[in-house]
Computed example of a mutant assay.
Amino acid sequence: MKLHLFIPAIILLLFTVTPISAHFFSNITSIPSSLIPNTTLWDGFNQFLGSHKGQKVNGLAKLKKYFQRFGYINSSSSENFTDDFDEILESAVKLYQINFNLKSTGELDVQTLKNIVLPRCGNPDIVNGTSTMNSGKRSSYSTNSTIHTVAHYSFFPGKPSWPASKTELTYSFLPENQLSENVRSLFGRAFERWSEVMSLTFTETSSFDKADIKIGFFSGDHGDGEAFDGVLGTLGHAFSPPLGLFHLDGDENWVTDGDFINASPLSAVDLESVAVHEIGHILGLGHSSDKEAIMYPTISSGTRKVELANDDIMGIQELYGSNTNYNETNPVLTPRNESEVNGAHNLVCSFWSHGILLAIGLSLFLLVL
């Protein structure tokens, strides 16, 4: 999140924002059909395919706003964008491609568009002109041969972290959300995944005002300058330490059982997967360009991804050190992409091959710009 928004966020969150009751479903079959978008928006994005500098294509102005939202175009740039594919857009596309380990052509090719339309974290990839992603660097932190030596993790500018005196962090949920025990325990598991590999521990408290980490579900503009956009699009965002604000989009169809074997509705989002990612931000991690990492910015709907990858572990241990019970040669958590293990197919690839692009999230985002 943008550092200059911290104080306004606190003031507006506490005094002017009305939280909502989020949509939670124990499994994907319980999502009402009325909440599942039934639309194909390939035609709207087909016009962008192959676009490059020098062209003029309807809709590029809104795409520039998308890139500005996530830091690829300077926030001080004029918001009176045109539909011209100019040097500003080409530079943004190239940097986006570098961050996501794509071929840096500056052209809106298939792979680039496939990434853009995925649901994602609302935290920007570039903050105040500094990329919070890393497309690959030699790691000087881990010398253990069982962990790869190319790191992709990153930190917020200035590398903020919780003070060393804080060995235990408390977290609490906005009372107005009235979360069930099942949902609260899901967050407990998400916190535990980080505490198993690092020195900090986490405890739930009923005192929301006094908690180190404050978790809430909101809809639309909720006072921190980063409005949510409805189903898919941006799923959540969190501020760097020590602010501890953790926001999720209450309009999503949040699934709590993590089972995507039998079906994968376009709008179903695994809550624990997103929670684990946002907790990484709360602790001080930025986005990673390692596709297997929890801190990778995007996740397909109908996908479960909750286990820390080596890249996540190296990053968090650089900030806080290792849990004394953590064995690097035999990790407590075995990093893996659960979307392959539980049978959920890659939605984007599947729909692309049928001429249907998972563009609902981006389109909704563009509509509110």
Results as ranks from 00 to 15, higher is better:
115 N>L: 10
81 F>Q: 08
4 H>Q: 08
102 L>K: 07
77 S>P: 02
270 D>G: 13
216 G>H: 02
144 N>F: 15
148 H>V: 14
174 L>Q: 11
68 Q>S: 04
51 S>N: 03
35 L>T: 03
336 R>Q: 09
281 H>I: 08
236 G>E: 05
45 F>D: 06
275 A>C: 15
299 I>M: 10
130 T>E: 13
189 R>V: 15
309 A>S: 12
242 P>K: 05
149 T>G: 12
90 E>R: 11
259 D>K: 12
240 S>T: 08
220 G>M: 02
304 R>T: 07
289 S>R: 03
182 N>P: 01
133 M>K: 12
280 G>R: 10
95 L>M: 12
312 D>S: 02
23 H>C: 12
302 G>Q: 05
357 L>E: 05
149 T>V: 14
336 R>D: 03
210 K>L: 11
121 C>E: 00
315 G>F: 04
239 F>M: 09
296 Y>D: 00
240 S>E: 14
12 L>M: 09
195 S>F: 06
350 S>W: 06
243 L>N: 04
113 L>Y: 03
136 G>L: 14
322 S>T: 08
369 L>F: 12
6 F>R: 12
72 Y>I: 09
269 V>P: 12
126 I>Y: 01
329 T>Y: 04
276 V>T: 14
286 G>M: 10
231 V>R: 15
52 H>D: 06
360 I>V: 13
267 S>E: 15
299 I>W: 00
150 V>S: 13
82 T>Q: 09
260 F>C: 06
71 G>W: 00
336 R>M: 09
228 F>P: 01
274 V>N: 02
310 N>K: 06
116 I>R: 04
261 I>F: 15
43 D>M: 10
70 F>H: 12
190 A>D: 10
90 E>P: 01
147 I>E: 15
356 I>Y: 03
268 A>Q: 13
180 S>C: 09
109 D>I: 13
41 L>V: 09
204 E>S: 05
167 T>C: 02
